[in-house]
């Protein structure tokens, strides 16, 4: 195996990553390795540091210390083309219709896959005709997810993709994520509160609590020892 392949086998590598905002430490020395092709859940209570960590992995924020590598390259402007990021509380321009937004997205993302976008419009039942500001939370969430998945970026980061989303939308989103990741070419890191609903999706889970991260742990190994992700979550956060 040559060096290039070895680097590619690791999608995300965080070493001693710390983050402070003003004087408050948000993340403490996070060490985290995510192998390429995995579907990984990032689990923890509100304020644990999940969003901050995802934002840094996306390359949009720099840690105060430590190092983050995406497929072997330092996270930052240079890795933006390899990462599709769905931020928490992200807003799409409300004055555009779904169709207008998708046209815009296709023009700004060089890796936009029109065929996949068309397929996802069907699978996610995206509302193309209504202005985004008049769409329901679930409709906008599905449009946002489409915007991530229609790109060919090998690393997908989803921050609470189900927040405020109705059951049917959650199911559609989960099915599309699974179908999209099934060939094992892409890597997904997803922060979510919906542990019970989402745990069958994950290969591995990372727990994060008050800025301390542990994992990834294999979900099947947990189950072999008679524990669910949820019971493990309660152990970790008890």
């Amino acid at each position: 195996m040559n060096a290039v392949q070895r680097q590619d086998a690791i999608a995300v590598h965080c070493r001693n990553v710390s983050m402070k905002i003003r004087k408050k430490t948000i993340l403490h020395d996070v060490d985290l390795t995510i192998e390429s092709g995995r579907i990984v859940g990032l689990l923890g209570p509100n304020g644990a540091g999940k969003s901050t960590l995802l934002k840094m992995i996306s390359g949009l924020t720099k840690p105060v210390s430590g190092e983050i590598r995406i497929f072997g390259q330092p996270a930052g402007v240079g890795t933006l083309d390899r990462v599709a990021f769905l931020p928490d509380r992200g807003k799409l321009p409300g004055w555009l219709t779904g169709a207008e937004w998708l046209q815009f997205a296709a023009s700004i993302y060089p890796d936009w896959n029109r065929e996949r976008a068309r397929y996802l419009v069907e699978a996610l039942k995206v509302n193309l005709d209504t202005r985004i500001s008049s769409q329901s939370r679930g409709e906008e969430a599905r449009l946002q997810l489409l915007t991530c998945l229609a790109r060919e970026a090998p690393l997908i980061l989803l921050d609470e993709p189900f927040a405020g989303v109705d059951l049917l939308s959650r199911e559609k989103i989960a099915s599309s994520v699974v179908a999209d990741l099934a060939d094992g070419h892409r890597t997904l890191l997803m922060a979510t509160h919906d542990i019970r609903e989402m745990e069958p999706l994950f290969d591995q889970v990372v727990f994060i609590h008050e800025g301390w991260a542990s994992g990834p742990e294999s979900v099947e190994i947990l189950r072999q020892s008679g524990r669910s992700v949820e019971t493990r979550y309660k152990e970790v956060f008890a």
């Binding site: 099915s175 699974v178 179908a179 979900v219």
Partner: peptide, 15 residues
Amino acid sequence: SVRDLAAWLRVNPNT
């Protein structure tokens, strides 16, 4: 297919 069944069940394709 593995992909269709995984999407239907909403479980990890490896499963």
